[in-house]
């Protein structure tokens, strides 16, 4: 195996004594598409928080392209090439779709080059291309706040792609989407893998199956098991975690 793009080693995160991540180790190869599932409270979102610098782990190491991400600010990590889509869509509601994408696409991200630099028209083609991928061309000058939930999800995915990161962290991309949109999203993510490394977190098993990728199951802040969707579904531990103990007789 080649050198992993992202590697988490023995990560612990504690919130006032509650262990959100408990000795979590995981690594991703360049170009890989990986799905992460887990019941509520398994630590999925905290896991992304650690990678993107929102939460600093109590102990452990995070390596990206061989460099440590610990104690780096969110914007540094983003500039290094890690993009993130949030669980509930977060777009800039008072900006138009075009302006949202322009912020993502823009290469200079420091204040002075932005102020003195050239006009956004340079990125116009790229932005229109992005809008056509997610079917938002007609909405270019609509404010993002007035988009529907599904459109916001897609806008955020398009922003993520526009950022052109090496690694995409996608948190529940299909929540609130129709079946058709879910399929399109799955295809889009699959097409991105290869050039990019993609990590998807979701609850929707149909969607995960469609991604047809290795799956990691998180439980109580730790990796429960890894494998293909088929293997996971056969795994007795996973069944127990998701459905409760058989002898408990609850489910």
């Amino acid at each position: 195996m080649s050198k992993p793009l992202l590697e988490l080693r023995q990560i612990f995160v504690s919130f006032d004594g509650f262990l959100a991540l408990n000795n979590l180790s995981i690594s991703l190869q360049p170009g890989e598409l990986r799905a992460v599932i887990g019941p509520n409270g398994a630590g999925k979102t905290t896991f992304l928080d650690v990678i993107t610098g929102k939460v600093s782990p109590t102990s452990g190491e995070v390596l990206f392209k061989g460099f440590s991400l610990l104690r780096k600010n969110e914007h540094h990590i983003a500039r290094l090439g890690i993009g993130r889509k949030f669980q509930s869509p977060r777009v800039f509601e008072n900006l138009t779709v075009f302006e949202n994408l322009a912020l993502a696409v823009s290469k200079p991200k420091r204040p002075l080059p932005l102020l003195l630099g050239r006009n956004i028209n340079r990125y116009s083609d790229q932005i229109h291309h992005l809008m056509s991928i997610v079917n938002l061309q007609a909405r270019a000058s609509t404010t993002a706040g007035s988009l529907s939930h599904g459109q916001k999800q897609w806008l955020e995915i398009a922003m993520l792609v526009g950022q052109d990161p090496d690694m995409l962290l996608v948190d529940e991309p299909v929540a609130g989407l129709t079946d058709e949109e879910t399929e399109l999203t799955a295809d889009l993510l699959k097409s991105l893998a290869g050039d990019h490394t993609v990590l998807v977190i979701d609850h929707d098993m149909e969607f995960i199956r469609r991604l047809n990728s290795p799956v990691t199951v998180l439980h109580q802040g730790n990796v429960l098991c890894e494998g293909s969707m088929q293997e996971i579904q056969q795994n007795p531990e996973v069944i127990e975690v998701y459905l409760g103990r058989p002898e408990g007789g609850n489910l």
């Binding site: 919130f15 006032d16 979102t45 939460v55």
Partner: peptide, 8 residues
Amino acid sequence: QKGRMVEA
């Protein structure tokens, strides 16, 4: 205040 509810 601590914890994950705190906005980053």
